[in-house]
Design a protein around this nucleic acid. Structure first.
Lengths: 334, 334
DNA sequence: TTGAAAGCGCTAACAA
DNA sequence: TTGTTAGCGCTTTCAA
């Protein structure tokens, strides 16, 4: 399994090994003849350049660290896929790490990636506190946050206009005739969620509606938590005609709870989500939702990061993308 | 952003840099005093070891290549998650690559990973032909295939007993009283699918049933293809009481087609899947299915690979895991 | 117990 | 146009 090196090729071709290097790198300081001959030999010997050695001298691994709460989450896996595609298109590979939503894991992995000499890091924070934990490391490697809105944080991030998204949602429901819209799953400790709630309130003000919240007391959003919350909610009297769920996973939990008690969605209750994760488009689910443009999020994150890396840019970029409404069939006119 | 090296630490601590190396590696050939002092200095200077340099001399990157059709597929993302967890637990990181189901991409990525000097590769083939394409490269780096059953192929792989799984499924349906069971989505060009079909036939023989197939003429299984197939199928008369779908994605497509024409599942037709992807457990979907133990698949794949890597094992391992039946609510007694 | 030095495979500056 | 050489940051003999 011993790999053939540039020296082996040099010997076989009867040239010095720097000449081989030149042939390989497409340097102009070499005659076409020798280059072709060397390339020929390379092919014959099945030579593959050692990227690690190259990285050492070039001081660039062409490797990007991707740290996210968990690829098994549909939102994250979508992100990871597009990040890989975009990164590869630009000549980079991805080291994937799951933080399992633990801030100390995030910091540990960050450190690990620095040791691995990645050229940059894309981090999908599991909580806004992530930034605080990571702060001391941030000056050591170009980093861009993705997904979470870090507000005024002096660090690059790419996210979606959550306030606008929530506004869009209410506007849609209002247009359908709904006047009693419950916002479900408001959660502390996340800017994303704070902004969504604010957008909802803003829209309520605009349309003359009374904001009503069902709070998520858990530390994150998931189908399970949404289900538990919805169970409690449905135990009480229903004096709203639509629910605007703060995330699609929450909406899925609501769907499950509704199914159990025989509450018909959308006939008896309209349901609107936020994110447009893969699950939402599945048959039988057909969740109408506010979409985060995930592919865009991913490729912009890579672009912002590589801009920083390749141009050794100082300063930071906040890139906020626009959400859109995806109409399926979980909402009915009132 | 310039990183501090072992030499900087050495200078600061007033020792030679080999001494620093010893302190860092926990070598016994060093006094406790100097080690502690050096470690102290490292911490002060915020030193992080350069893994790339280490990899060069150690001839081991502690990096594993993970090549799969696409992490955005729920089955794959589950796999990727657990592979990362298990690999990290054993001191390795993952380079993630999506082949987008293209055999030539797989080979290209394989080559790329070799250049990156990964210690091993886990490859989730997009087709059984993958093996043929990859064959010439396989002797260059320890590799394990995961997910697809490669039958007698003299190369390590971890997969599930698909024949047994299919048998399990028929057995379950039979137990529910079904006697007319249609196998949906049989597909050429995949051992996995061949084995599932065989298991189905075997069970039919055992239980005195007549095997009946609905063929998948597409090159892969997906919700979309399942949907299209099901549309055609439902245009004809229905003379079966249960469908055994070759994959959960196919089953999801069936669900969608059924929904459109108002065919009630499970009341009018029982539906059984295979894989137990994340989607299948979602509310409203609740697909009863044969489960591939994905977490197990992932961690066994890592273990088999690292065994090979760390013990420089010759030969190969075929590890076949047992599927189980996950009962939800898409099947009703007849 | 510590230091000096070689070398991993490569790029690039300098010489020829 | 080609070859020689230094050096990237580290581990590991071999000497001291």
């Amino acid at each position: 399994m011993k790999n053939v090196t540039i020296k082996d090729v040099a010997k076989a071709a009867g040239v010095s090994y720097s000449t081989v290097s030149r042939a390989l790198s497409g340097s102009p300081e070499i005659s076409a003849d020798t280059r072709d001959r060397i390339l020929q030999v390379c092919k014959q010997m099945n030579y593959t350049a050692n990227t690690v050695a190259r990285a050492m001298v070039m001081k660039s691994t062409k490797l990007l660290g991707l740290i996210l709460p968990g690829v098994n989450n549909p939102f994250m896996s979508e992100l990871a896929y597009h990040i890989d595609r975009q990164a590869r298109a630009r000549g980079y590979n991805i080291i994937l790490c799951n933080s399992s939503r633990k801030a100390e894991q995030e910091a540990e992995l960050f450190e690990l990636m620095i040791g691995r000499q990645v050229d940059g890091i894309i981090l999908c924070p599991s909580a806004p506190e992530s930034y605080e934990t990571l702060k001391p490391h941030l000056n050591r490697v170009p980093t861009v946050f993705v997904g979470e809105n870090l507000r005024e944080t002096p660090e690059s991030y790419v996210s979606v206009d959550n306030r606008k998204g929530a506004f869009l949602g209410v506007e849609y429901l209002y247009g359908l005739g709904h006047r009693e819209i419950l916002y479900f799953g408001r959660r502390r400790g996340s800017n994303t969620h704070q902004l969504r709630a604010e957008g909802y309130e803003e829209a309520c003000r605009e349309f003359g509606l009374t904001p009503r919240f069902c709070y998520n007391t858990f530390s994150s959003s998931s189908i399970k938590y949404g289900y538990q919350l919805a169970k409690q909610l449905f135990a009480q009297e229903r004096d709203y005609t639509a629910i605007f769920a703060s995330t699609d996973t929450n909406a899925l939990g609501i769907l499950q709870a509704a199914e159990e008690i025989g509450l018909k969605i959308p006939e008896e209750l309209s349901l609107l989500g936020f994110d447009n994760i893969h699950d939402s488009g599945l048959p039988r689910i057909n969740l109408t939702t506010v979409e985060q443009p995930m592919k865009m999020l991913a490729s912009v994150a890579v672009d912002v990061l590589l801009d920083k890396v390749q141009n050794e840019l100082e300063g930071y970029t906040h890139r906020i993308l626009m959400p859109t409404l995806v109409e399926r069939s979980s909402c009915l006119p009132r």
